[in-house]
Write a protein that binds this DNA or RNA. Structure first.
Lengths: 206, 206
DNA sequence: GTCTATATCGTGATAGAC
DNA sequence: GTCTATCACGATATAGAC
């Protein structure tokens, strides 16, 4: 019987959270297929039967884990852009934070590795990620471009995707795919060049 | 004993290629861990013992497969940019081809899924991919920017990465991660906006 | 070199005591 | 609700006939 994380006693919440923490260790380290329910139980400090009393099967545990992690990540996309700040500074701050966030978080790297690796067999999980992270991020920036008179781009959403895509792909190439060892480049050069494109090239009304 | 694909008789070459073809089917469909050597053998039309007489173990087969596929892909990065063409058209053609290449090739999607998914446990394979595909691609475009007087970017390599990164990330988001179902966008809008940034915003010398 | 048959082990999942 | 003990199965890898 599947037991959704219904909270009756705080005790039970703790167990479910414990299991999810163990599952995170195991799934992020080995990927879905190579992860072992024995090791999940060991990492969580419970028996395997307990794991199966909280989650129907391996797939359900994995699904819940990814959705939980996506929800937590989602919290941190709030209020990225400071409307009161000067646009050039606001954009620079946004890009710097996004770059830092994408580049220097090994746990997040492993999360994306699993998500991308399983996106063919677990399309709904990939969609959850896109829905809760990529989409709000792009829309926030696009809306900022649209509402701020300092910008006058023909296609604000495409522009937002180019900005985010540059940063995300840089992080994937350099950090996740180990490009740093083969084609090193400082993060600041991407940010500086994006700023150059947005502000120093932008068509000043002649 | 490991048997490298030494070609003595054409017969043996055929078998090795057959096995690699079967391995491709299985590994790309299920990922490394979930792939079964039984199914590899079945897909290749040989017995499992034959597979093990050509490749030391599962890991060696996987490694050889990825290196082979990367080498084949590598061939197609030749001569992307037409030096004789007008820059605006050359860039547009490049972006269109790259976008098509990244978006409409399910086999390539699965290849990248496996590579990204295993990039933590097989870092050398990820590096091979970067070395043979990402690096030459970025360098070709950067060199084009540097050598062509129509462009005068402060950081041509960062600019090249932004262009490629935008396209690659768009493909990953829309196709691999199924973003098309959640935040649809035509490929042309990315290309048009990149063209706008490169040509219509570029600092005219006043 | 290639096959059939098998050894050995770890896996996901469960039964039953408490 | 949680544990220990166990089942049934499929995995990688190999032995040995031909």
């Amino acid at each position: 019987m599947t037991i959704a994380p219904v909270l009756s006693k705080p005790r039970e919440m703790k167990k479910t959270a414990q299991i999810l923490r163990g599952a995170m260790e195991e799934f992020l380290a080995r990927g879905y297929a190579a992860a072992s329910m024995d090791r999940v139980a060991a990492a969580a400090g419970v028996s395997k039967a307990t794991v199966y009393s909280h989650f129907a099967d391996k797939e359900a545990l994995f699904t819940t884990l990814v959705e939980t992690m996506a929800r937590e990540r989602f919290q941190s996309v709030r209020a990225m852009l400071d409307e009161t700040m000067e646009p050039r500074l606001a954009i620079r701050q946004l890009l710097t934070i996004a770059m830092e966030d994408c580049c220097n978080n090994e746990e997040f790297h492993n999360f994306k590795r699993v998500l991308v690796g399983e996106s063919g067999r677990f399309p709904e999980l990939a969609k959850t990620f896109v829905e809760h992270l990529s989409k709000p991020g792009v829309e926030a920036i696009a809306e900022y471009f649209r509402s701020n008179p300092a910008f006058n781009f023909p296609d604000p959403e495409a522009m937002a995707r180019i900005m985010i895509g540059s940063v995300v792909n840089f992080a994937m190439l350099q950090k996740m795919m180990h490009g740093d060892a083969i084609m090193p480049m400082e993060q600041a050069r991407i940010i500086d060049t994006l700023e150059y494109l947005l502000f120093d090239c932008a068509p000043k009304s002649p």
